[in-house]
């Protein structure tokens, strides 16, 4: 019953569309819809930002988006519609970088699902951000290390 839409949007071709996300996750039986929209900020660590470039390993990124949706459904149950879209290419301040949305019967599941979607996208999707500063410098963000699934028989727990 869970319905999913996952997209990578090349900013040279199109823009992210928050209204499309809302429309996709809507259902007559769903009274709760949540959406997170990430936009490019004009300031990072005290430095004025002109724009951001997103680099992406597309095939694996889409798989991670789909996994995020599956995790949201596993968390709240099968009555859910989820949407994940992330931009790639050069974005200007104010442009939409990411849109995730969840529709469920009630608000609590919708909030929890939306949080799951954005956290998985931020921490697990193979996407890299390079910030371009007003002073002409460009810097790749440090980010979160990915972690392959442990070997069979590998039993210690990780702290992250």
């Amino acid at each position: 019953m869970s319905e999913v839409e996952c997209l990578i949007v090349d900013i040279a071709q199109a823009r992210l569309d928050a209204s499309a996300a809302l429309e996709f996750v809507s259902d007559p039986g769903f009274g709760g819809i949540t959406m997170f929209v990430g936009r490019v900020r004009d300031l990072n660590h005290g430095r004025s930002v002109l724009g951001v470039s997103y680099d992406m390993f597309d095939p694996l990124a889409l798989k991670v988006f789909e996994r995020a949706c599956a995790e949201a459904a596993a968390l709240v149950g099968p009555r859910i519609r989820t949407y994940v879209a992330h931009a790639k290419g050069r974005l200007a301040v104010g442009d939409l970088a990411v849109v995730v949305a969840a529709g469920t019967p009630h608000r609590d599941e919708a909030f929890r699902a939306c949080r799951t979607l954005i956290e998985v996208v931020k921490h697990q999707a193979p996407i890299w951000k390079q910030e371009h500063y007003v002073d002409g410098d460009s810097v790749w963000s440090e980010g979160c290390s990915l972690c392959a699934a442990p070997d069979p028989g590998h039993t210690h727990s990780h702290e992250h």
Binding site: G38, Y54, M56, F57, L60, A61, H86, A97, V98, I118, V121, K122, H123, Q124, A125, P126, I127, W128, K129, W140, S141, E142, G143, C144, S145, L146, A148, A149, P150, D151
Partner: peptide
Amino acid sequence: RENEALPANGRVAVLPPVSGG
């Protein structure tokens, strides 16, 4: 994983820490 065989098609990617969103 580190002890895994390389893919038969010979194509891989190296992924630095990620920073999407």
